[in-house]
Nucleic acid binder design. Structure first.
Length: 547
RNA sequence: GGUCUGUUGGUGAAGUGGCUUAACACACCGCCCUCUCAAGGCGGCAUUCACGGGUCCGAAUCCCGUACAGACUACCA
C-alpha cells in the first residue's frame, strides 16, 4: 500500500488541499498592514495577561490598517467552559477591544471556531500522509509512560523521536490491518528535523533567539479526529493569512515545531512576536511568578470593574507596560489618546513585567483629574447603582451639590488628584452628606492636638459668613487668627514658636477637622460654601462634645 | 534531567561599545511655595548595571562560565 493509498484510505471523503487554498485567497490590504489575532481557548472570562495580549494585537492591527480577528481554539473539549467564548467576547468589548472579524462576528476566512474546521485540518493531514510526512501511531498512554520513565532514568531527552518513535517504521499494510481491527490511533508528524542543527530566529519582540531543529514526531491529530494546537495554528494562520502571531512567550519553546510545520506544509511562516508575561510577587514564597487567574484576584479583568477603576485607565496602564516609551510620550502629549501613539514590537518589554498596582492607581488619578465633574458624577452614579445602592441614592438626591464638590479645584493646570476609582468619591466626600456623617460614631481621628475650640466657636458664630470671595474669607481668618494669638507667617512662628498658639494653618486645620473629621480635604473655603449654616452649627457642637 | 528566555535603585524602566559622573515615571523621604488641604516646584533615593572571568585604548552594552528566576518538555492550549 502506498502512502497515497493510505491517505485515501484514512480520509476517503476529505477534499484536496487545493480546494481550501483556492477558497481562502490572499487578503487585499495596504502595504505593511498587520493581520493578527486573539486566539483563546473558551475557558471563560479573560485573564489580565490575555487582555494585555489582545490589547497589543488590536493596537498593532488598527494602527497599520490591518485586521484583528478572534479565533476560538476549542480543540480540547475537556477544558471548555459553558458560554466561555461568549464571556471572552464580552470582556473584550468591555475594554473596547472589538475584533473586526472572527467568532460570532463573521468574515471570509471562517469558520473561526476550530471544532468546525475539522475537515480543513484533515485535508492537510491527508496531504502530509500522502507525502510520507505523517503517519498513524498506535502507542498507548501506558506505553508512552514507560518510555518516558526509561528516558528519565537514562537522562535522555524526553519525547517521541528517533529510535523511540516506534510507529514511525510501521508498514502501511500493517497499519491498515490494525485500523481495520478498530485499534485507536493518532497521527504524528514524521519530523525531518535534525536536533544537532542550531539556527537563529528573529522574534519581533525577543530579538534573535537560538533554537535547535525540531526532531519530535509530535501529535498533529488526536484520536477524536481533532488537531492539536500546533497543527491547527499552522493551518489556520496560513489560511487566515495572519502576518503576525502575537502570543505569550510560553510558546517560544515550541517555535521549532511550528517552523517545521510551516515548512513541511509548504506555508510561509508568519512573523512571531512573543509577549512576556505579566508577573506578580508571590507574598508567600517571595518569588516572582506569572499572574494567576486562580490565585490572584487582580488577574481577572472583572476585578477592575469591581474596584471602580475606569476602563480607559486600565488601557492606559496596558499601553504603559506595552511599549516602554509610551509613558513618556503620553506625558509630553497629555491631550492625545492611546490611538494617537504608534506602538512598535521592539519597544515591548522582553522580560516579564511586575504588575504595579501603585502605578495603575496613579494613572487612574491622572485620568480622573482630566475629566469633568459631570462625567465623574454620571460614572460614579452608574457604578454605585451596581455596587453601593445606598450611596447611589444620595448621589441622586444631591446631584448639584455632588457635582459642585467634584468641581473643587478641578480643571486648570494643577487639578487635584485624589480620586483614582469611583468608590473614592465617597471616601473623599462622605462627610458632606449629613446622612453619612450621622452614621459615623465618634468620627474624629485627630483629636490629640490641643485645639482651642473657644476660638473656633467664636470664629464660626461671629466672623464666618457665606458668600464671600476666597480672598475675603482667608483675610478674615488671618485677621481673626492674628488677634487670637496665632502666627500669620511661617517665619514668625518658626522664629519663636513659644509666643503663639500656633500658625494660621493650625487654626485652619481645626476648622477642617471639625467639618470633615480629617486633616486632609479639598479646599476648605469651597467646602464651607457648600455647607448650610445649620449643619455648620451642628458640626461645631458635635466637635465640642467630642473634645 | 534537557531545551529556551531573562537578570539595570523599593517598582516600571531608558540604555544596542565612548555624549552615562546610568534618563524618565511611580512610590517613599526632605525642603520650598501658595500666609488652609491638595496640586505644583526643587532636592534625596543604583559611585553602579546578578556574580566571576575575558575581548578592547574604552563595556551596563560583545564573548565565556556560574548563580538565580521564569517558561516549555501532554492525544492542554
Amino acid at each position: 500500500m502506498t502512502n497515497q493509498e493510505l491517505a485515501q484510505y484514512l480520509f476517503p471523503d476529505i477534499k484536496d488541499v487545493s480546494y481550501y487554498e483556492e477558497k481562502y485567497r490572499d487578503r487585499t490590504l495596504e502595504e505593511g498592514a498587520i493581520v493578527t489575532r486573539f486566539a483563546p481557548s473558551p475557558t471563560g472570562s479573560v485573564h489580565m495577561g490575555s487582555l494585555y495580549q489582545a490589547f497589543m494585537a488590536n493596537q498593532m492591527a488598527k494602527q497599520s490598517h490591518g485586521v484583528f480577528f478572534l479565533r476560538i481554539e476549542d480543540t480540547d473539549h475537556k477544558r471548555e467552559v459553558e458560554n466561555g467564548a461568549a464571556a471572552i467576547l464580552r470582556d473584550l468589548k468591555d475594554f473596547d477591544i472589538v475584533p473586526s472579524e472572527g467568532f460570532s462576528i463573521g468574515g471570509e476566512y471562517g469558520p473561526y471556531l476550530q471544532s468546525e474546521r475539522k475537515e480543513i485540518y484533515q485535508s492537510y493531514i491527508k496531504s502530509l500522509i500522502a507525502r510520507g510526512l505523517a503517519y498513524p501511531c498506535f502507542c498507548s498512554a501506558e506505553e508512552m509512560d514507560e518510555v518516558r520513565k526509561i528516558q528519565e532514568a537514562t537522562k535522555e531527552r524526553i519525547g517521541y523521536y528517533g529510535r523511540w518513535a516506534t510507529c514511525r517504521s510501521l508498514d502501511n499494510d500493517e497499519i491498515r490491518k490494525r485500523i481495520d481491527a478498530k485499534e485507536p490511533y493518532i497521527i504524528r508528524l514524521r519530523s525531518q528535523g535534525d536536533f544537532t542543527k542550531k539556527h537563529i530566529y528573529h522574534d519581533a519582540i525577543k530579538g534573535d533567539v537560538e533554537y535547535f531543529e525540531n526532531d519530535m514526531d509530535i501529535v498533529i491529530m488526536k484520536s477524536d479526529g481533532l488537531p492539536t494546537y500546533h497543527f491547527a495554528h499552522a493551518v489556520d494562520d496560513h489560511l487566515m493569512h495572519t502576518t503576525h502571531v502575537i502570543r505569550g512567550d510560553e510558546w517560544l519553546p515550541s517555535l521549532p515545531i511550528h517552523l517545521e510545520l510551516f515548512q513541511l506544509l509548504g506555508f510561509q511562516a508568519p512573523q512571531y512576536a512573543h509577549i512576556a508575561p505579566v508577573m506578580k510577587l508571590d507574598e508567600e514564597t517571595g518569588n516572582i511568578r506569572k499572574l494567576s487567574k486562580r490565585k490572584d484576584p487582580e488577574a481577572s479583568v472583572h476585578y477592575y470593574q469591581e474596584m471602580g477603576i475606569p476602563v480607559p485607565a486600565v488601557k492606559l496602564y496596558l499601553a504603559t507596560i506595552g511599549n516602554t516609551n509610551f509613558e513618556e510620550w503620553y506625558l509630553e502629549h497629555p491631550e492625545q489618546s492611546i490611538d494617537d501613539f504608534t506602538f512598535t514590537f521592539d519597544k515591548m518589554p522582553v522580560s516579564g513585567t511586575l504588575f504595579d498596582v501603585s502605578k495603575l492607581e496613579n494613572i487612574a488619578k491622572v485620568y480622573f483629574s482630566k475629566r469633568t465633574a459631570e462625567q465623574i458624577y454620571e460614572e460614579t452614579l452608574a457604578y454605585s447603582l451596581q455596587h453601593d445602592p445606598s450611596f447611589a441614592l444620595l448621589l441622586q438626591k444631591y446631584r448639584e451639590k455632588t457635582i459642585a464638590l467634584l468641581n473643587i479645584e478641578r480643571g486648570g493646570d494643577r487639578p487635584r488628584k485624589d480620586i483614582g476609582a469611583y468608590p473614592d468619591v465617597k471616601k473623599e466626600f462622605w462627610y458632606m452628606y449629613e446622612e453619612l456623617f450621622d452614621q459615623k460614631e465618634n468620627p474624629y481621628q485627630e483629636v490629640q492636638k490641643n485645639y482651642h475650640v473657644e476660638d473656633l466657636e467664636e470664629y464660626i458664630t461671629t466672623i464666618y459668613q457665606k458668600g464671600k470671595t476666597q480672598e475675603e474669607w482667608f483675610q478674615d481668618i488671618k485677621d481673626f487668627a492674628a488677634v487670637h494669638g496665632y502666627a500669620t507667617s511661617r517665619k514668625d512662628y518658626k522664629a519663636n514658636p513659644e509666643a503663639y498658639k500656633g500658625q494660621v494653618s493650625d487654626f485652619c486645620e481645626m476648622i477642617r477637622v471639625m467639618i470633615t473629621t480629617q486633616t486632609i480635604s479639598p479646599n476648605l473655603y469651597d467646602l464651607m460654601e457648600l455647607m448650610d449654616s445649620d449643619t455648620l452649627q451642628k458640626r461645631l457642637q458635635l466637635f465640642q462634645k467630642a473634645l
